[in-house]
Design a binder for these strands. Sequence first.
DNA 1: CGCGATTTGTGCACGTCTTCACAAGCGCCT
DNA 2: AGGCGCTTGTGAAGACGTGCACAAATCGCG
Lengths: 230, 230
Amino acid sequence: MARLPEYLRALHNLAETGHETVSSEGLANAAGVNSAKLRKDLSQLGSYGTRGVGYDVGLLIDQIEYVLGLTQRRAVALVGVGNLGHALAGYDGFASRGFRIAALFDADQERVGEEINGLVVQHIDELPRVAAEESIAIGVIATPATAAQRVADQLVAVGVTSILNFAPCVLSVPEGVDVRKVDLAIELQILSFHEHRKASLTALPAAGGSALTALPGGLAVTESQEAIGT
Amino acid sequence: MARLPEYLRALHNLAETGHETVSSEGLANAAGVNSAKLRKDLSQLGSYGTRGVGYDVGLLIDQIEYVLGLTQRRAVALVGVGNLGHALAGYDGFASRGFRIAALFDADQERVGEEINGLVVQHIDELPRVAAEESIAIGVIATPATAAQRVADQLVAVGVTSILNFAPCVLSVPEGVDVRKVDLAIELQILSFHEHRKASLTALPAAGGSALTALPGGLAVTESQEAIGT
DNA sequence: CGCGATTTGTGCACGTCTTCACAAGCGCCT
DNA sequence: AGGCGCTTGTGAAGACGTGCACAAATCGCG
């Protein structure tokens, strides 16, 4: 499930604050989900909480980390060292949560050779050589949209089977390769949509405006989708 | 719907390449979704495509932009000018897609006064004054997790009703305030999960491993969730 | 003017996800 | 040792999203 990482983060928080066990209710609150949903998710894991007590925090962390495949520190290749790529390369949240940025690439010779956070930016053509030296399973694309598909193809060619794409475009990849997309502008647009909806509702509580304002009733949006990641 | 922004991006692409009309099939491909799904989404909009021809690209763009509330250029306040905040402040994808970064804030006096992309970083205590001068509807939080909740409270206090949260923590906000969360590490962990699953499947096609490896059948993950944002 | 090719809009069925509610189990206290 | 309160795990019902398949509508061409 896509919620497991959120549980994991909440569990780490709890562990740091000295909790040894958590109830499903407590963990659900910390992760921002329903307690029944959490219990069902955890039961699918085969994880055993003890009734009347709750879940063992440390044990649960181990289990979730195992299922997520975080027992091995996965090597990540980051392509595109522009504005966003720079930030990603320097983001310590990756290192602290089971990932290691193994190499930085860019197509711009201007940027090749630059050192970021102890890593030297290499030219994208070096990708096959680097991939041969250490197994890279995950690629992060932080290039402009025009370059993204080409980079994706190159990543796939050297055996990368999971891609995190920050470029605003859809990637076509062969079957078996997973792509997740994060588009910052889209996130804002979704918020803007909610803003617009809220404004319409307060301005004209029941009156039908123009044909465009109407939103024929089908567009009722899910209430309070608070704190849901991707 | 959360897919509207994706359609919009695809439509802009099509418009730039000279297309006047699109079939649902064509647009669906460009946006990476099923054509039936796209038609259903668009019909909810009340948008009229013409049968036998397709959709008018320009008209559809206008309609979607209206529904998303992009006819007005919304002012965004960005709080936290660290590694990620820097990148966000410099990201031109915001400006080009209907948003204007109106102000930058940070709690660190060290960073106050710094100029990024033509904007001067102000201290977070200035937030009420700035918010009084121009209406800010959307706030972006790019602070460490420890500061995120406090910042969120401050944003809500000055009337912000939509928050985009990059900090790895859940925010509690009053009803009527929308929060969207983007956690970069979680995205990677989800990919790692798929990697782990793929590796387990190829390594032991039918053999049951340890109790932990078992994944009692219920954990079948959605196949090919390619190119889905958020 | 009529016909065929094409494409939208949608009814229907299916599978998934979510939530409630409750039985089963565990520990603690007396 | 027994009972009581608390918590997990899960069955069932309902909401929701998805995709197929087809009728209705429109355009172009002869």
